[in-house]
């Protein structure tokens, strides 16, 4: 776990790389917007776990925020995990299916 100031440094370094390193291109604006959007999305999604139980939502919220800050920039990983590689899709497919079965069958 990193402190808030180190994650700020990380984010700044990440943005600096975009702007001064490889040049400021229109593709990079997409990545930066995507990164910020994704962070907000998963934080809101974590908050939504309150529909199952309130303490779970608080735990998820803290966990997701911490992990997201720790792993910034996340968008590279997101793009990789969402590639159209057959095995990768198959892997996620199995995970989703197992979670759905587990939640509906043993969740209640």
């Amino acid at each position: 776990m990193t402190s808030i100031s180190t994650s700020y440094e990380k984010l700044k370094k990440f943005l600096d790389e975009f702007i001064s390193g490889n040049g400021y291109t229109n593709i990079m604006t997409g990545y930066i917007t995507g990164e910020l959007q994704f962070l907000i999305f998963i934080i809101v999604l974590a908050a939504l776990f309150r529909m199952f139980s309130f303490p779970l939502a608080i735990i998820m919220l803290i966990l997701v925020t911490a992990l997201a800050l720790y792993f910034t920039p996340t968008i590279i990983g997101v793009e990789k995990e969402n590639s159209n590689d057959l095995n990768r899709v198959l892997y996620w497919f199995l995970i989703y299916f197992a979670i759905i079965i587990a939640i509906t069958l043993w969740g209640g």
Partner: peptide
């Protein structure tokens, strides 16, 4: 990932 996939398959299979 392989281990996770096997666990997932087990859950699906048992269900």
């Amino acid at each position: 990932r392989g281990i996770l996939a096997v666990i997932a398959l087990l859950i699906i299979g048992i269900g």
